[in-house]
Amino acid sequence: MTTRWLTPEEQRAWRAYIGAAHLVEDALDRQLQQEAGMPHMYYSILSSLSEAPERRLRMTDLAERLKITRSRLTYAVTRLEKDGLVGRENCRWDKRGSIAALTDEGMTVLEHAAPGHVEMVREVLFDRLSPEQVGQLEEIFAAVTEGFQGDEAHGTADDVPWRRRSTKPCS
């Protein structure tokens, strides 16, 4: 198989994406750690649960929304559960599944953290883009996401993080 090297334009775009992604994630993590004492991942969990019906989501659905592995989500929810921000419930219709539920305390923490977080998102991303660029950004990343979630031809449809099986042995 011949390697399809990136063109100079693709290489510049790739490096720009990597640089921006790292800087944005770092800025969001630092802001949330300073103002809310939590990493961006934990904030994302609380935010996703706050938008769900009855502030509850099945863990597999939450992993899919967040685009992370189930084991990473389980670890994070366990930490949030210890802090009283999330509760876990058995799933009535699937005995193997569980539900993550945002507690009232978790909602209070989220409401406190949200204004600073949104301001940081605006500052590091949207304030630097024109309205046209915002539309292009959405279009670009929607195409990338859709490609991962439904690309049977390239074998990526089942290799998304939330569908991966853990390679760790059971204890």
Results as ranks from 00 to 15, higher is better:
19 G>L: 05
117 H>L: 04
135 G>M: 09
118 V>K: 09
95 K>M: 03
19 G>M: 05
104 D>V: 08
62 L>Q: 05
27 A>T: 09
77 V>T: 14
5 W>P: 09
119 E>P: 02
137 L>G: 08
6 L>H: 13
8 P>C: 03
124 V>T: 09
132 E>N: 12
131 P>I: 03
168 K>D: 15
101 A>N: 09
110 L>I: 07
62 L>C: 01
106 G>N: 13
149 Q>G: 04
41 M>Q: 03
54 E>I: 13
119 E>K: 01
127 D>I: 02
37 G>N: 02
17 Y>K: 07
83 D>N: 12
139 E>A: 05
157 A>N: 02
161 P>C: 11
115 P>N: 11
130 S>I: 04
128 R>D: 08
138 E>P: 07
170 C>S: 12
62 L>R: 02
109 V>P: 01
105 E>R: 10
152 E>L: 13
133 Q>N: 08
86 V>R: 03
86 V>S: 07
128 R>I: 08
84 G>I: 12
122 R>W: 08
73 L>D: 00
15 R>P: 06
88 R>T: 15
144 V>I: 15
47 S>W: 00
80 L>Q: 02
171 S>H: 04
65 R>P: 00
150 G>D: 13
1 M>L: 05
167 T>G: 14
158 D>Q: 13
115 P>R: 01
99 I>L: 13
24 V>T: 01
112 H>F: 04
117 H>F: 06
32 L>A: 01
20 A>G: 07
28 L>W: 01
98 S>D: 13
140 I>M: 02
135 G>N: 11
10 E>S: 01
29 D>R: 00
73 L>A: 03
107 M>A: 15
86 V>A: 09
132 E>R: 14
171 S>D: 03
115 P>W: 04
137 L>M: 14
82 K>S: 14
124 V>Q: 09
119 E>R: 04
120 M>D: 00
44 S>T: 10
116 G>N: 03
29 D>V: 00
101 A>Q: 14
151 D>S: 12
155 G>H: 10
123 E>M: 08
102 L>P: 02
150 G>V: 09
